[in-house]
Design a protein around this nucleic acid. Sequence first.
RNA 1: GGGCGGUUAGCUCAGUUGGUCAGAGCACCUGCCUUACAAGCAGGGGGUCCACGGUUCGAGCCCGUGACCGCCCA
Length: 886
Amino acid sequence: MSLQDRSRFEPAEVEPRITAAWLGSGLVHPPAEGTAAENFSMAIPPPNVTGALHMGHALNGSIQDTLARWHRMHGRRTRWILGTDHAGIATQTQVEKLLKSEGSGREEIGREAFTERVWEWRAQYGGTIVEQFKRLGATCDFEAERFTLDEGYVEAVLTVFVRLYEKGLIYRDNYMVNWDPGSRSAISDLEVEEREVTDTLFAIAYPLTDGSGEVVVATVRPETMLADTAVAVNPDDERYTHLIGKSVTLPLVGRELPIIADEYVKTDFGTGCLKITPGHDPNDFEIGRRHGLDELSVIGEDGCMLPEAGEAYAGLSAADAQRKVVEDLRALGALRAEDPYTHTVPFSHRSGSRIEPLVSLQWFMRMDELAAPARQVVADGRVRIHPESQRRRYDEWLANIRPWCISRQLWWGHQIPVWYRGTPPTQETYVGMTAPEGDGWTRDPDVLDTWFSSALWPFATLGWPRETPELQAFYPTDVMSTGRDILFLWVARMVMMGLEFTGEVPFTDVYNHSVIQAPDGRRMSKSLGTGIDPLALIDGGPRPPVFAKRPGDDPGEFPAYGADAVRFGLLAMSSTQDVRFNEEKIAQGRALGNKLFNATRFALLKVEGIDAAVLSGGPGAEAARAPEDRWILSRLQAIKAEAAQRIGEFDFSKLSLALYDFVYGELCDWYLELIKAREVDADLAATLLHVLRETIALVHPVMPFVTEDLWAELPGHDGGLLAEASLPAADAALRDDAAEAQVSALIEAVTTVRSWRGDAGVAAGAILDARLTGDGYGETTALLARLARLDLDQPADAAGAATIVIPGGTVEILASGAFDPSEAAAKTEAQIADLQKEIARARGKLGNDGFVAKAPAAVVDAERAKLERLEAEVATLRAQLPEGAA
RNA sequence: GGGCGGUUAGCUCAGUUGGUCAGAGCACCUGCCUUACAAGCAGGGGGUCCACGGUUCGAGCCCGUGACCGCCCA
């Protein structure tokens, strides 16, 4: 349909066609040529293969695509590396659920069949999010999608494991891990969520072995006492110093426990005596290692008590064991108090189960050696973190880094490349890329933490460890854009691995984008009902309940805003680290798209009949430019420069709002209105089309669909895609301060007269007889007359009835029935009152000796000039009022 | 407990190095189908810039203390 047959931009009609054009053009998959320094590349934080597009993806996708398109349009070969993450636990959980619904389970079908099923599941559902990115207009490299378990990637992961093992950084050890009884696996610290829980704090008396008394310890987990191996007090706690080195007898068990001193113990918590259970508490574990204590285990991986807990408790769940221990202690008379106690407790982010800290045999990776260079590259600026305030978080995390437990008791993932033969005392271990020769070898059943493989993302996706052309052309990448929550989880580990294995930083800029909260300020989450589906914004759909004005009200439906509007809105919203979702910003984006659409319609109507070659040859001849032409060309350079600056600063909010302000506040509200009555010659037409073309190109990275659609309608269009076009940088030669001043004054004059008309009761369409006095309006008088609806062609001696002060002069309105003199006088009086206030303020300042003496001379002079101007203005306004007024 | 961000108009947010910075969008009121756009145009009302104290000739902005909201870490 032709542009002129439509009066609004309809995204749903246009988006599929344009998406197909982009993806069919090959622009997302540039050849692997040139150097990484010349090219622009960026790896997507690989979305979870089980995932669906949420607000965070939509925002980050908008950011990355804006960057990709911007750099592509500025002549850089641009590759936005796409792929998904195999997401060990999340995916395995999905498939286990599926099996359960079929009355089966992973144990029943065995590892091989299970893995098979996960691959099938992935083939069926794993592409969802990638397809959804297309809806956003994202120009990721859909032609070279990667997966963290595909063949080349496995090679990279195994290579890294083997090399780190050989270097001694990867080792196997008994260590305290976050055991998730729900998924029956160790999970990382970062997959643990702290929740506030009210438990009971039990006070238990432990008698001193020598019979000289007792100590009372406080605990929320009395059942773990069965694994106690010490009691600790603070060395500075005078109440207990005399006990250090003595021992207590553990009730119910009878074991003798030493009383030790450790700084960790807080003197003001509970009784100041702490029972130490190295096998079941992470802090106690650390204390235990410091003091060489035994690490006893009484709770197993299934969350039930082990035989080591004693006959009375073995086999009970931890909760049942707790009840029985408390009962038995009470019977013994050892229970001194039970009080409700609210504290934070770790839960698995994966399964929701309460974490059971356990000591278990796991694979670990020593991080301190890798952390030091990763800190260094940020410290010396080789990797820049935006906003800079996040640098400290990064550094502190790395400074306090601890060994990373990299093994997971799962079936879905990179199986650890370690084989064993024989039994422990004489067990042989083989570590290598492939199974060892000989019989009797068994492979370690565990898989690697998913983040182990994701940490290699920026280079493993480009073919590492092979020296591929892709690696040559696109590594190191330029930008990593992520949410703050994975600055450690991911970004820091990528930096470490990148430096270790490629010798280079994996990217030069890390951008931490905003977190968009629900409209009520809570976190956006599916389970809270506060999540917003980006596709519901694009296509229209029910609003989540959180949008209801009052609970229970019908929140209605989102209109189909289209992808451009969603992109614009999300970018515009994301100003600080946490922002509330703001539907108005999406609507603002839709309005902007529609505005551009109609501005283009208008421009094309104006230039009808002008030769296409003229219209695509840049602005009209300099000599033929009217002030408003020089003004808009100058303003266009300003917005181009600002956009480049904002991109460089990663300030996408200011970028998008600045584009809005230019299109609305300068191009459409003023330039198009200013030229409306002009006869269109070749020069004007060329200038108009030039400005329009560059504006469309400038907005393209943020709003690709509408701009691509309009681009194809511009005269002289050669059939090429805007996405592949180039946008020249701002041209300083087109900046024109004089024209800017001239047109600013005109705009202010028009606005002032319009405001006066409103207050003086002038009918909207009425043309007022008026006389213009003032400097600088020579070329713009006719424009002022037209836009302010004045007839300025009046005899010089006609009597003025009202005076409007405009920059550099006045507009005198002649007497007529078109305005109400009393309303006009009231307006004038109100103006005078306002001016008097400002005059008083200026006089106050200038009357202050301190100000005159200490403020810079320029500021004082400006204040004097302002005062003079205000006084002159008041005098002018007063002159028109009846005697005695104001 | 530590770190970070926030508190400015009814709502969501801008306000660079302290001096025409009190702004925008939406909402609201008034008037307009003015030869692109009613998802539009023109105009208008509306704010003790969280509180207190300090620095300064001058503070929304700098410093201190406190309150509240959110996120992260322990």
